[in-house]
């Protein structure tokens, strides 16, 4: 049997979840024996070159690009896993969810203390090349179907490892109390 293929991405996240994935230490050697990576910042493959078995999603959706990438992952991956608080519930980027988007943009480009005198033409970013901000930050499962969730900020390396191994080997997943945490 050929190796399962894994893809990963960071949407509106800080890359901390990917760092935590690397934090499995020397087990990374075992991981590359167990799986093959496709589109992922880990191997720098930018576009899907084949259908994948597992997609790991870090970060929620804060702009149109995030939604596009997430839908692309759903299309190319049999199983999608949201990992980390941002993917699960929006995380810190979702702190803006109670503030109207216009106010956020005005603060960032017109009125904020670091920009107030440096944007005399009062330009807000508005170019086809630049992804559109969404009205709020969405958890991934409110955009596409997500199959599994791994909470944590970041999810503990042991949680990511145990979950991946259980999924790949088909063994039962046993989670010690200490590994499922929200911070």
């Amino acid at each position: 049997m050929s190796k399962p293929i894994v893809a990963t991405t960071s949407l509106a996240g800080c890359f901390g979840c990917h760092m935590s994935l690397l934090d499995i230490d020397e087990r990374i050697l075992k991981l590359i024996e167990l799986v093959e990576f496709n589109k992922s910042p880990i191997d720098d493959i930018k576009k899907f070159t084949k259908q994948c078995d597992i997609g790991l999603i870090e970060g929620g959706c804060c702009n149109s690009e995030n939604v596009h990438v997430l839908k692309d992952f759903r299309k190319h991956c049999k199983i999608l896993i949201s990992f980390g608080e941002c993917a699960l519930m929006g995380g810190l980027p979702a702190l803006r969810n109670g503030i109207p988007i216009k106010e956020c943009l005005d603060e960032a480009y017109l009125n904020g203390p670091t920009v107030v005198n440096s944007n005399p033409d009062k330009i807000l970013p508005n170019d086809d090349e630049i992804p559109m901000m969404l009205d709020k930050v969405y958890p991934c499962h409110e955009i596409v179907k997500i199959d599994y969730y791994l909470p944590g900020c970041p999810p503990r390396a042991d949680l990511i490892w145990e979950a991946l191994v259980a999924l790949i080997t088909g063994n039962e997943l046993k989670l010690p109390y200490e590994v499922v945490k929200f911070d």
Binding site: S82, N97, K136, P139, E142, Y148, L150, L175, Y177, V180
Partner: peptide
């Protein structure tokens, strides 16, 4: 944690 909630099944209200 005790009930192993991975994610709430309901939509976030924010």
């Amino acid at each position: 944690y005790r009930y192993q909630m991975m994610v709430p099944r309901f939509p976030y209200e924010f």
